[in-house]
Every structure is written in C-alpha cells, then in structure tokens.
C-alpha cells in the first residue's frame, strides 16, 4: 500500500513557480528523502503535504485518500493525522517538555491518564524522563531535537514529515540523533518523508531518495542508485563528489577516452560524444594502471587523502589511503565507470 502519493504538484508564490509539477510516492513504513539544494522547493512540498499550504495544481493522496487537489484542501489537518518536525523545531517556549508533547494528544481528545502513560513511554524511549518539567530553552540542542521528534510521533501519525531537523546541530551530535531517528522510525514503522540538503543524512536514513532541483524531481531511487547511477548531470554533481569526462563514441561499445580507446557499453550509440562518470573512490593509484598523470593537489581528509590528478589534458579527483607528494607522476586505473549521455 502507498501511504503517500504526490501527483503533478505545482505551487506558485508571487508569480514564481516554486514547485513545478513533481510526482512521487512513498510505500507504507518507508522513509523517503527529498534531497536538494536550498530553494529547490522541497520544504514547500512538505508544507503542502502537511496541509499548511494549498497546492495550485496537482493532487495529494494520503493512505490512498485524496487530501488536496487543485487549490482545495479535501482532508483537514486533523484528519490527515500527520506528525511534523520543523527546521527550527518550533518548540513552544511557554510550555514544558511534557506540555509540548501533550498538546497533540489533547487535540485528539485523549484522556488525561492515557496521555500521561503515552508521554512517559515516549520520554523513556528517548531517555529524557527527567526533563519532563523542563522548558525547551533550558535543553541542549540534541535534547530539543529529541523532544521535537517525540512531539511529532506521540499521536502515532500515519505520516511523519521532517523538515531538515538536523540542520542546526554539530556533526557528532548529528550522527547520534540520526541514528536515533532511524531507530525510532524503524521501531514505530511510521511512513516518513524527510527533507534535507545533506546527502549523508539522506543515505543513512532513506529507503528511497528523491533528488530535487528547481522545483522538479530529478531522480528517484534507492540511495545506491542515486549514488552510482545518477540519471542527470545535476544528480551526479550534487550527490557526492564525481568525475565527469567527455568522451567520443567510436562505434558499437567502443569509446575514446583521453587515455585511449576502450570497450564499454554504449547503449546502441555508434557515434557522437558522451560523458563517462565515476566516483573518486572508483579510481585507484596502482602501478599496473593504464592511465598516467601527475598529482597536482593533495588534501588530508583524516582516514584518506584526496588527490587532484592532471592527466591527458583533464583533471580528475581520486581518494587514496597512501601519502604521495604533490608533483609525483603516478599510474592509476578506473575500476568502474558509467557512460551517460546527459
């Protein structure tokens, strides 16, 4: 069953199309990430799904029921049964942690003793029982994050929307919270739509990723598909670091690269130009490699080095664990590459 379907969604602000006809759907219990640079329309999409904004065109189905269509809200926010975590968390500063979480339960008319039981449960699961009476301002960044998540899932929503919830905290904490989000999502099995511009979050959390650019979905797929088989130049360059080299097609399954002619599937093309695409870690420095080049730049990245190699008139990026001096001539091989004609 599909928990969420978005069809041909369009949203216009001030005569500018922010969302330009996007479609995707999310399977029950899955986590889909909308990944894209800021201003690509992903937050707007989220807000339309939440029922905060009204779409100018298109349809939203939640649990296969029509929720919004063409400037109309068909299902009210109450009936949508949605949880949402905001980018600035939007914890209410005049309520305690307990009251913050309680609000949604009260709205749904849950009895007091039942409310208490549920809140205690959720606070226990995020290990924050002792902060129940604290005000949000007194909590650390990570704790606030957890409260915001707890608040959004307390009502057991059908759909959880998360709008860049990790954008304001430091790297180490980010990893912990990320793990926590994944755990909670898997335990509760709530269908989740996650918005971020951070690919690490996306890869770690998602069942599927939709990469967005300028109000359109560029590609939807599993994290692996997105990473290794980008379908557009934008996806290739936005997700991770990549090398894109222009090549000529010499014939069926024959291409001419800067390092010579080699055999590679060409999708039935026999001539013209195309691009080959490969990730830096798909290139290895090895003395038996067929390509030659000169190291022009070296960055220390902790567990590995990142090198820029100038070779046959092009510059590529590769990762290697060993330290070499800049200026050294090396041989390297490209383990895997993909031909794309974007």
């Amino acid at each position: 069953m599909k928990s969420l379907q978005v069809k041909q969604l369009v949203k216009i602000f001030d005569k500018k199309e922010i969302v330009r006809g996007i479609s995707f759907d999310v399977e029950n219990g899955h986590l889909l990430t909308l990944l894209g640079p800021s201003g690509c329309g992903k937050t707007t999409t989220l807000r339309i799904i939440a029922g905060i904004e009204i779409p100018d065109c298109g349809e939203i189905y939640i649990d296969e029921k029509l929720a919004s269509r063409d400037k109309k809200i068909c299902i009210s926010q109450k009936e949508r049964n949605i949880g949402m975590v905001f980018q600035d968390l939007a914890l209410w500063p005049h309520m305690t942690v307990y009251e913050n979480i309680e609000f949604g339960l009260k709205t749904n008319g849950i009895r007091r003793d039942e409310r208490r039981k549920k809140i205690e449960e959720v606070l226990q699961s995020i290990n924050m029982q002792k902060y129940a009476r604290a005000y949000p301002q007194t909590l650390s960044g990570g704790q606030k994050q957890l409260v915001a998540i707890a608040r959004s899932i307390i009502t057991r929503p059908r759909l959880l929307l998360m709008d860049e919830p990790l954008s304001n905290i430091d790297v180490k904490l980010r990893q912990d919270i990320r793990r926590e989000i994944k755990r909670i999502q898997q335990e509760t099995n709530i269908t989740t739509l996650y918005v971020t511009h951070d690919q690490e979050d996306a890869f770690f959390l998602s069942d599927r990723i939709a990469v967005m650019n300028e109000g359109k979905v560029e590609q939807i797929g599993s994290p692996e598909e997105i990473y290794f088989s980008p379908e557009s130049l934008f996806v290739a360059q936005f997700v991770g670091e990549s090398n894109c080299i222009e090549v000529n097609i010499a014939g069926i399954n024959r291409i001419v690269t800067p390092w010579g002619e080699l055999s590679h599937p060409t999708d039935n093309h026999t001539k013209g130009t195309a691009k080959i695409f490969f990730r830096p870690h798909q290139v290895k420095i090895d003395q038996s490699g067929c390509c030659k080049g000169k190291l022009v730049k070296r960055d220390f990245m902790g567990e590995w080095y990142r090198y820029h190699v100038s070779s046959s008139g092009v510059e590529i990026v590769l990762y290697d664990e060993n330290s070499y001096n800049v200026g050294k001539h090396v041989k390297f091989s490209i383990k895997e590459m993909k031909l794309v004609s974007f």
Binding site: K78, E79, A90
Partner: peptide, 28 residues
C-alpha cells in the same frame, strides 16, 4: 516565526486552540 503556529496546526488542533494555547501565551 511561522513554524510555531504550523507546529500546532499539523497536530490537527483547531485554530481556536492554537490561538488560545499557543499564540496568546506566546504574545503575552
């Protein structure tokens, strides 16, 4: 911030509840 109010709206709270429990106390 707009999100303070939206956070109440997505729980399905009626606008009166939002006005009474969130907007008014916050704008004290």
């Amino acid at each position: 911030p707009q999100s303070i109010e939206d956070a109440g709206a997505v729980t399905g709270a009626s606008w009166f509840r939002i006005a009474g429990n969130i907007l008014a106390p916050l704008q004290k």
